[in-house]
């Protein structure tokens, strides 16, 4: 009885160790993507800040900052095929981004910028989500 219990607790401990190891292995690329993605966002936002007029500055608000960081790290760590699949998802997401900005012009004009820009997320969600449901299996 005691032997059986020991065996079970040992196998549970081994499994927990394996899960921890896998999560640690996944945690490194996630942390790297967060760090590099954050740095690229800051770099592009500084270019946006220095640009005038505001329509020109807006180009850099929709720059591929997060995409550059994520696809580069994915391509290096998981290979180009995984990065290509992510880029295909990004193509659908970019249609959502266009919808976000189009809706944002109206919502920001009618509400305050914070409420308007949050309401415009609905445009991204509907278009990107709809395309994902239609094309991603």
């Amino acid at each position: 009885m005691c032997n059986k219990r020991n065996k079970i607790s040992r196998s549970v401990a081994a499994e927990a160790k394996l899960i921890l190891l896998i999560s640690m292995r996944e945690l490194i690329p996630i942390a790297l993507k967060a760090l590099v993605g954050g740095a690229f966002v800051v770099a592009f936002s500084l270019v946006a800040e220095s640009a005038r007029p505001k329509t020109f500055s807006g180009l850099f608000s929709a720059a591929p900052s997060i995409a550059l960081a994520s696809l580069f790290i994915t391509s290096l760590m998981k290979g180009p095929s995984t990065a290509t699949a992510q880029a295909a998802g990004m193509l659908l997401g970019s249609a959502g981004m266009v919808a976000y900005c189009l809706l944002g012009i109206f919502t920001v004009g009618r509400m305050h910028a914070l409420a308007g820009s949050l309401a415009a997320f609905l445009g991204w969600l509907v278009v990107a989500g709809g395309l994902a449901l239609a094309f991603i299996r």
Partner: peptide, 16 residues
Amino acid sequence: GPHVGGLFLAFPAILP
């Protein structure tokens, strides 16, 4: 999966 994750590479992160 990578396709769904890829959607967020074109997420309006800094616009708000």
